[in-house]
Structures are given as C-alpha cells and as structure tokens.
C-alpha cells in the first residue's frame, strides 16, 4: 500500500518538535514502531513516516500532553484493550455505535447484555463498515464472525480487516497491517479497515 510519506526532517520542521521529543515519544510507545520506515537515500539512512497518521498523532500528543503524563497518554493511545464493560443501552445512548450494528450484533448474540472491550471493538468496526454504505448486513455478519474468531489471538498486532466481493459472493479476511493485496480480475475490494485506527477511535469515544 503506497502512501504519502514524510521524512523525519520534514516532520520536525512542520511540527516544530525536536529530536528529543520524537525519540521520547517513540520510547513511551506514543508512536507505533511500524510507522518508522527506514529507507536508504542519497543522504544516508533516513526515516520516513506515513504522513497523515503521524501528523494527526503528533497533533494529538501536543494537545493532550499538558493535561496528563506521557505514561497516561501512552496507555490511552496504546493498542491494548481497555478494561471496560458497557451495557447496550449506554452504548446506544452515547452514540458510540449505530443502532443497526447493535441490532445485528444482538441477533447474533441474543444473550449478551454488557460488552467488554473485544466485543465492543467488533461492534465498533462493524458499525464503521456499515456506515460506509458499501457493506450489506449479510456481509457485516461475516465481518463479525471473522473478527470474533481471530481478534483475541491478535492482541497488540497491527492488522487490517478486508472485505472482498466477486460475483456477489463476499469474503472476509484479516491481513497484516499495510500489506499489499493483489486481486484477481473481477474481484472487488469492498472494504479495508485498519484495526489499530479503529481501536484508537474507539478508545477516544470511550473516554
């Protein structure tokens, strides 16, 4: 997946932060390891970052670092689960996920009344998928099943959830974050969501 890259020099210049800050934030895991892309250039080894992600993240850190310690910040931005359980009513009331997604999830798990982090994440991702308008309810079910089956064993890893369709037949899979996909002719990439981004958004909504 080719994306817009920003060199470290440009980043420092653009954001006005120092090497010390950048390395400190990296050490405290405020910036994920896999955003550091090492490349050889004619001026020697240089580090690049995915432009949009890093700029958003730096802005976020700058805004929040006055209110809390770096460690608090790190645990908030980390990819790990949050210790939380939330009832369905609260979920809808706080507008964290859409009603459609909740209803779908309830049909699949009629007994669940409160949600811990992983089900929440499934639900949130499904809700995000449905809101793109490209995904049918049937396909969303597929998505929930896939996420439920694989997410527990993937904690802390960067994965993308991908939905493919060919001749009306849908297929859902998880791939390594940022991995390139080459599809056969006629197949269509319906949806691709970066799970760390979903986790991050969800965590912010849960605050």
């Amino acid at each position: 997946m080719e994306q817009d890259l920003l060199s470290k020099k440009e980043l420092l210049e653009l954001t006005g932060i120092s090497y010390g800050q950048l390395y400190r934030w990296k050490r405290k895991h405020l910036i994920p390891e896999d955003w550091f892309i090492h490349r050889s250039t004619f001026t020697g080894q240089e580090t690049f970052f995915p432009k949009d992600k890093i700029l958003a993240r730096i802005e976020q850190i700058k805004n929040m670092k006055d209110g809390m310690s770096l460690d608090e910040l790190a645990s908030m931005l980390a990819l790990g689960p949050v210790d939380i359980s939330m009832s369905r009513e609260e979920l809808i009331k706080r507008n964290i996920v859409s009603d459609v997604a909740v209803e779908l999830y309830r049909q699949m798990h009629p007994d669940t009344e409160t949600y811990s982090f992983l089900p929440l994440l499934c639900l949130y991702t499904t809700s995000a998928a449905l809101s793109t308008g490209d995904v049918s309810l049937e396909e969303a079910r597929l998505l929930v099943n896939t996420l439920e089956q694989h997410l527990p064993s993937l904690e802390g890893q960067s994965v993308d959830v991908v939905l493919l369709r060919k001749l009306g037949l849908a297929l859902c899979l998880l791939v390594d974050g940022g991995a390139e996909l080459r599809l056969e002719p006629g197949a269509k990439l319906v949806l691709r969501l970066h799970m760390p981004a979903q986790i991050e958004q969800l965590r912010l909504k849960l605050l």
Binding site: Y19, G20, L22, Y23, R24
Partner: peptide
Amino acid sequence: SRVRDMGGAS
C-alpha cells in the same frame, strides 16, 4: 562499541 542508531535529546 557498536550501535545501529542513536537518538535522543542530549
């Protein structure tokens, strides 16, 4: 001594 990269404030 050998190190691949070194980075920090001071």
